[in-house]
Design a protein around this nucleic acid. Structure first.
Lengths: 218, 218, 218, 218
DNA sequence: GATGAATGAGAATTCATTCAT
DNA sequence: TATGAATGAATTCTCATTCAT
């Protein structure tokens, strides 16, 4: 956000012809588009709808994006870049409890992200899934899995997690399971309270399953 | 159903050859439709495509279904009825290991079902999710959750599962988690082998978390 | 024309579902399209215009032709097939005068054909000339040239035309020159009377140039 | 032309550096435009394309030309002015052979002029032919015809050409025929070598037809 | 003068649905 | 019942032109 503000600030230096912050514009359009998609569904949303939501003329959209497809791809790219950023930021956990708490926070997505997901799975159900999205997704979940594997290894070294689990494999399984739970909630629009209870319960079992018995290493 | 039979019956006085089993016809059409949807994606499939796949004329589809929407709804109805049936059939498990094995089998869906799911989430991303589908889905997962809750209660009584878990809540969490893992695999088209390893790993943690320590009741 | 009547006649035999003479329909559409193109120019004519002219809905055009391009190609195909037919029908000429008279008739195209040409050269100016049209055109003019060459050879044998001309080369030159004169008239919309005078004059020189001096062979 | 100079002149009181040679600018733009039209075809060329080719902004084009139409008209005007100039320059021929040689040179157009023609006939097929272009063209060919008529009259007086041809009519016919042959070549992109052979052959017949028998005056 | 972002009318094309046969 | 030709609203995308800077 602060970056964008900085970009705005740069506008006032000098500008003979109409200067537009193209990156900012693209971003605004994507926001408008996403809003429309979430409200009406991707396939029910026309470029006209998006234009109206962005307070622009239809043609203007095509200045910033070659096609509806390209715009959609840009949304996906941006979303995954954001997720990427969030992962990278994660601090390593000292205890299993901290780790579980982190997982909880990751799963407890805000409801607008849930709407986000519904759009993603409408767009990338089968249609052109294989192309852009699945590559992103696959890579993303691999990284997420590896990240969790690292955490688990650390916790195993600290004696917090049973040694006999394969950290790599377990990390990937965790990533998949967490994604699944989030998806389940996103798609079926489950009440947040209920969702939280489910997540808590799930993490309780997970924790119990992972945790080393006190005074033993497996 | 009986209505359909009545309709058929009203016509059998003469022109036997023209009597068509409406229910059968509807089913055949739904099969053809689903095949097309899986192959091309829901929104990329036209009624023409469906008609061709069903070896019928376009107009004929409208004799059996009021609209594309109605046809789609019928597919969902049928699918959930099928799932319903599968659940109801499940036998109660004597041990936690049998239970986990059942879960494994449930998660190890054939790859055509995975394709199925992708279509479902294309159709019922946001579009008209709230209407028909989410009701079905909510009810379905409630029943599934209740079913698992029953199993868990049983296993708790048998001392196989720690007493301190809330069976109802845990049952629902299990349903959500399993659905999620299956979704994750379906959507991201993960290699079967990898998926199986993930499921095994997940169930191992689950089992460890659920299982009562020998000689104790939590 | 008689062929079309025959096709009409065949309609009355039997026809349970709506039977449409597809070939006839295509032809009617092409007629309407050509009329619109001639009136407004190809690039100024929309499929809507064509549809209106054909008293059809826009969508109906796409039942008979895949695209505007395909429709255009069909017009060209049909036109060249017609020209082809006309050439093939030509009888061999006994004298140079008959030959020149034939040339005259060929050049004295009706004014609707002139309009035709203007459309052709709008469409096949540079745009996609190389693809369909130029192949047709090249082959057509080769055949026309060969046909004239045959005639000239015959007339040379009969002592009507000077021997020293190369029949093949002269045939092709004749084809090009005739095409040119017709084009010139088509494009510049020259008054018919003036055009005829020009053609007569041209043929007079041609005739004088070609004709053997009486009692000599070159 | 003088008007444009006047416009330039009215601005030279101050701000010398900003003074642009409007006529020169217009010319450069037309060159760029023509280049684009020849490459992509008139209707496939956008003002953006022209602007890019002219290394100018789109808006700038509209400073020099009111519209795409106006720009196109300007191209035509310029082209015909150039042709006009070429004709006027022609020297009178002393012999029929010189005359024919001149005709040959006129017909043996460079291939970039052929491309030129293709654009002309795309633009001035029917579209707005009647307006600007056909007037130009009609007048141009009249002048050309008159010019040839003059030459022919001269040659008739010199006894080089048969007296019985009507010089005026023949001149116009020559103009049309030559234009046609050039068009034929331009449109069908005939190989130069073949084209030359055709032209030679045509001129040979023409010459033979026109030439007075030695020692006779018709 | 020069720029190029913005505009919006209009083009080609698709497809769910209807209906005469 | 079954057919498939016809429909036309709706969609994506283009591009000549305008105008604030």
């Amino acid at each position: 956000m602060s970056i964008l503000v900085a970009e705005d600030g740069s506008e006032d230096c000098r500008q003979m012809p109409k200067v537009v912050d193209k990156a900012r514009m693209r971003d605004d359009i994507l926001d408008a588009a996403m809003q429309v998609f979430v409200e009406k569904g991707y396939y029910a949303s026309s470029m006209s709808n998006v234009a109206r939501a962005a307070s622009l003329a239809k043609g203007t959209l095509y200045i910033y994006f070659d096609s509806k497809d390209a715009m959609t791809t840009a949304i996906v790219d941006r979303h995954f870049a954001m997720l990427e950023h969030e992962i990278t930021q994660g601090e390593t956990c000292e205890t299993l409890d901290t780790f579980l708490e982190n997982l909880y926070r990751t799963m407890d997505i805000p409801s607008d992200q849930a709407a986000f997901h519904r759009v993603f799975f409408e767009v990338f159900g089968p249609s052109f899934a294989s192309d852009t999205f699945s590559q992103h997704a696959a890579r993303f979940f691999d990284r997420l899995g590896t990240y969790y594997a690292g955490q688990i290894t650390l916790l195993q070294q600290r004696g917090e997690v049973k040694e006999h689990y394969n950290a790599q494999s377990m990390g990937r399984a965790l990533a998949g399971m967490m994604d699944g739970v989030v998806l389940h909630m996103s798609l079926f629009d489950i009440a947040r309270r209920r969702h939280r209870r489910m997540v808590r319960e799930t993490l309780a079992v997970l924790g119990a399953g992972l945790r080393s018995a006190p005074g033993q290493n497996d």
